[in-house]
Design a protein around this nucleic acid. Structure first.
Length: 458
RNA sequence: GGCGACAUCGCCAAGUGGUAAGGCAAAGGUCUGCAAAAUCUUUAUCCCCGGUUCGAAUCCGGGUGUCGCCUCCA
């Protein structure tokens, strides 16, 4: 298993700290808004990372934090005219709802920043004692100049940062790259008591504190979007390692951006879609396919045509599963033979190479093709098993059984039986009319040598 | 200004030294009363120029183009 490590800019062999156990921390949402479809990328991708490790019997502990206090929430609170805590509550709930709709598994822990304030204060105190932090008028800053190797994750040098600074430096800071550990509260803002007065923690501290508490001083994988490399993760490393002299995480994984029509998704350009809006038009699996059909580190361009293509591709996979009468073989135990294991091996090899999901998906299509040629149900079992690793074909029983009351189902069967009679009588006009009318209602009929199948289309 | 990424068929995309996976779309054939599904067949020499090599999409240099990051900040 090889993983591309942002820290070294190389693919490295993955060796967990503890055999059979993988500890992951992936930066989660700041709950000030509904998350957009670009935010769904790390959620879906790291969901797959977890599933793949688990496929090999590893125990995975995934932590995904919820940032429920920061400037964005405060601004939002002013906009919506409701308290910050209610903003946080509202959008935290929305976050979990949307994840569920996207068929993303919950993490094992979802720590909230506001629940770790005292731990953060303790860390900041420690940093102050060790002279990595300084206080100015109730604000506390981290002094990057005191850290050896600052910039090692993002490949930036302090001199360059200074030279390239496009924003006027905060005059309180000793160095422009110094970042806030504790921010003094303005009147009316949420606040907590601290040795430096009332205020709130800075952005980067929560992840250090929460990962340390839930995963230990050093853990295996730290993940997130590429935009978090600098300054967020860089600053996490700086304060974590300054305080305990231990590596924060061994492997740093970052997913690429989602662009829309070639441009970065951004609020000011008004070119973003919330995940919940996209879900109104497309299935969770189409969205998943869209993301996984490209390597996670590449930028990906979002447009509806491509989601539609993805949707069609997923549908074709389902066609094969349906044609295999999967519901009737689902409970059969199946033992894979050499021929199946070859395909499985292709899949695993692809995934072992820094999670090459695009290639892994192509293996699913190979399997489908082979099934259609051989009609060997083993391939359907394999397709489902490997699809599950990528988060496809979950809850198949529910998805495949036609979601109608018994009576409606019986009515359709009745219509089909009449249509069969009409077909025997070569009354094609009426037979087609039944099929077309049902199609308009979203029910598709398919004549096969074994009889007529029906499906409900979305 | 500094740092970095990317450029492969109509579209999406894998492939990092050995002669271009896969998906979607399109065309034609088989099957079918017709559909649908399935199946068979067809479509690229990899942005440009130069170099290294027996051999490069893959390595090196130059060019062009697109994009990202550069501090609590919208």
């Amino acid at each position: 298993m090889k993983i591309y490590n942002t820290l070294t800019n190389k693919k490295e062999k993955f060796i967990p700290i503890e055999k059979g156990k993988v500890k992951m921390y992936v930066c989660g949402p700041t709950v000030y808004n509904y998350f957009h479809i670009g935010n769904a990328r790390p959620l879906i991708f790291f969901d797959v990372v977890k599933k793949f490790f688990e496929y090999f019997g590893n125990e995975v502990i995934l932590v995904r934090n919820v940032t429920d206090i920061d400037d964005k929430l405060i601004n939002r609170s002013i906009e919506e005219k409701i308290p910050v805590t209610e903003i946080a509550e509202k959008y935290t709930k929305a976050f979990f709802d949307d994840c569920k709709a996207l068929e993303i598994n919950p993490a094992d822990h979802h720590p909230k920043a506001t629940e770790y304030i005292s731990d953060m204060i303790n860390l900041i105190k420690e940093l102050e004692e060790k002279e990595f932090a300084y206080e100015v008028n109730g604000d506390v800053y981290f002094s990057v100049s005191n850290v050896e190797g600052y910039g090692k994750l993002s490949g930036k040098k302090l001199e360059d940062l200074q030279a390239g600074a496009r924003v006027e430096a905060n005059k309180q800071k000793k160095h422009p790259a110094d970042f806030t550990l504790w921010k003094k509260a303005k009147p009316g803002e949420p606040k907590w008591a601290s040795p430096w007065g009332e205020g709130r923690p800075g952005w980067h501290t929560e992840c250090v504190v929460m990962s340390r508490k839930l995963l230990g001083g050093t853990f295996d994988i730290h993940g997130g979007g590429i935009d978090l490399v600098f300054p967020h993760h860089e600053n996490e490393i700086a304060q974590a390692e300054a305080s305990n002299n231990k590596k924060l995480a061994n492997y740093w994984m970052h997913n690429g951006y989602l662009n829309i029509e070639g441009e970065k998704m951004s609020k000011s350009l008004n070119n973003f879609f919330t995940a919940r809006d996209i879900l109104k038009k497309y299935d969770a699996e189409a969205i998943r396919f869209f993301f996984l059909s490209k390597h996670y580190r590449s930028p990906i361009d979002f447009n509806e045509d491509i989601i539609k293509e993805s949707s069609q591709a997923v549908k074709n996979l389902y066609n094969t599963i349906k044609s295999a009468d999967y519901l009737n073989i689902i409970d059969n135990k199946f033992k894979f033979t050499e021929i199946h294991l070859q395909h499985k091996n292709n899949f695993v090899t692809a995934m072992n190479d820094d999670f090459n999901t695009a290639k892994a998906i192509s293996v699913l299509f190979d399997i489908t093709k082979t099934y259609n040629k051989t009609k060997d149900p083993g391939f359907i079992h394999l397709l489902i098993e490997l699809g599950n690793v990528l988060g496809f074909f979950l809850d198949l029983k529910e998805k495949l059984s036609n979601d109608l009351s018994d009576i409606s189902g019986e009515l359709i069967e009745l219509l089909i039986s009449y249509r069969i009679r009409l077909k025997h009588e070569k009354n094609w006009e009426m037979a087609d009319r039944i099929r077309n009318d049902l199609k308009e209602m979203g029910i598709t009929l398919k004549d096969t040598p074994e009889g007529t199948d029906w499906n409900i289309e979305k």
